[in-house]
Design a binder for these strands. Structure first.
Lengths: 181, 181
DNA sequence: CAATCATTTCAATCCATTTTGAAAGGGTTG
DNA sequence: CAACCCTTTCAAAATGGATTGAAATGATTG
């Protein structure tokens, strides 16, 4: 049974991480690659990934690139080998920071921009509206602002959490947790 | 141009919210329906949704159900009308709580379970491993624990944030923001 | 610089999810 | 209870995204 437990653990973790990634808008393979790199901890090459995940060379190549683009792994080399190797972040905290930053850039920023646009559009149009429409427009604006404020608050919270660092946050939360009980 | 500005705002917001939802593992239509209900603020019926979003009856029906299942909207009725109407949460904060809870249940809990399984699996197998494998197993375990701890910390943070409530959090963050500058 | 090895690209294919529309189901009304 | 209205269901079709594999590109070596 020697290696089996290690294999099994890797597979189980990788599979689940992949499924999770998929429901989070990240391609299953990309998430699996990330999980594999993370759990393994050592540099892996394209062939390792192909073999362990049973995917094609092209697929492995594409998704390894994505993982690197997201900043979740970096390219590296092992001496005496011509191939490229990949190694991932080693801590969940780093992963979290990386992913948060990336998703913020890709998803939060566009929605912020859209809401800004919507609100200034509404403001511009106000004059030309009759009183009933004006009331509706004001309601819309209130809701849009509500989201804006929420996003600002979340950003502030994230900034605080991130600039505090994992160690201190963990301690703070442990302390706060005792209070809560 | 009367209604146009309102239409335009709705469409713009709905489209973007839909796109965002799609990259978050929520079907585009479901997200669009949610956005439409949110921005409109008034109860809408299936036909309204079909018309505004240009989707089929079946699609509207299915996804309205989903939105209700997630707890993002509830069924309601307007007097003198036999149809069912749907109305959504009115605040971003409520939406956040609802979505967070739902995603936790659907995605975080399974990964927690998997990691638990992996770790006890590893612990069980330890005895049968030679020293080198044992070292690897310990590394794996360390990484799994790292994720576990991270998830616990995040849960604690979320609980605190949610039990504090939006108003107070907003104030706290505003105050903290001034410090940070 | 030819040979070898590694990586990337991309058109074709595959697959999963979403969407449709028509039929079935449920309820209400005169 | 028949006619009507609304909702749900579901098999079939459409769509969009992921995957493949082979060819092109790039890099290293003797």
């Amino acid at each position: 049974m020697s290696d089996d437990a290690l294999q099994r653990t890797r597979n189980q973790f990788v599979r689940r991480w992949g499924e999770m990634g998929a429901t989070w808008g990240i391609s299953r393979t990309m998430a699996e690659i990330h999980a594999l790199l993370f759990i393994t901890g050592k540099p892996l090459c394209t062939d390792d990934v192909m073999q362990q995940l049973e995917v094609s060379r092209g697929n492995a190549s594409m998704n390894l690139r994505q993982v690197v683009n997201w900043g979740l792994a970096r390219r590296t080399h092992v001496r005496g080998d011509r191939k490229e190797y990949f190694i991932s972040d080693q801590s969940a905290w780093e992963m979290f920071e990386t992913i948060t930053r990336e998703r913020h850039r890709r998803e939060v920023e566009p929605i912020i921009e859209t809401i800004d646009d919507c609100r200034s559009d509404l403001a511009q149009a106000m004059d030309a509206l009759d009183s009933k429409q004006k009331a509706t427009a004001e309601e819309y604006d209130r809701r849009l602002k509500d989201i804006q404020d929420f996003i600002s608050a979340m950003n502030a919270l994230l900034n605080i959490v991130m600039s505090t660092g994992s160690k201190r946050i963990a301690k703070l939360l442990a302390a706060a947790g005792k209070f809560a009980q």
